[in-house]
């Protein structure tokens, strides 16, 4: 899956770069790779609305189902990405 060139959704775990692309282009919350491990409460402007948007955007782009309840308990973007696994 490539956010800029992909034409279909595939069932693959996104790379860090693709994950950042989803955050920027679909969620509207641009971050750098260094911010993936920043705790949500330290991430300026972050709120749970973005987290919900991230879940639906990730599922649509990757074709994978995320464990929503666990995602909602994640403490950083990196933890969210770690929850994306191919079954």
């Amino acid at each position: 899956m490539d956010i800029s060139t992909g034409t279909t959704t595939t069932t693959a775990v996104p790379t860090t770069e693709q994950f950042i692309g989803i955050l920027r282009d679909l969620v509207g919350f641009p971050v750098g790779p260094e911010e993936l491990d920043t705790a949500f409460d330290q991430l300026p402007g972050w709120d749970s609305v973005y987290l919900l948007k991230l879940v639906t955007s990730m599922e649509r782009e990757t074709g994978l189902r995320l464990p929503v309840a666990r995602v909602l308990e994640a403490r950083s973007l990196g933890e969210v990405l770690a929850l994306v696994v191919v079954p």
């Binding site: 749970s48 919900l52 879940v55 639906t56 929503v68 309840a69 909602l72």
Partner: peptide, 10 residues
């Protein structure tokens, strides 16, 4: 989406 409904009241 039943999960969003259950967990986030969406």
């Amino acid at each position: 989406d039943p999960r969003m409904n259950a967990y986030a009241r969406v």
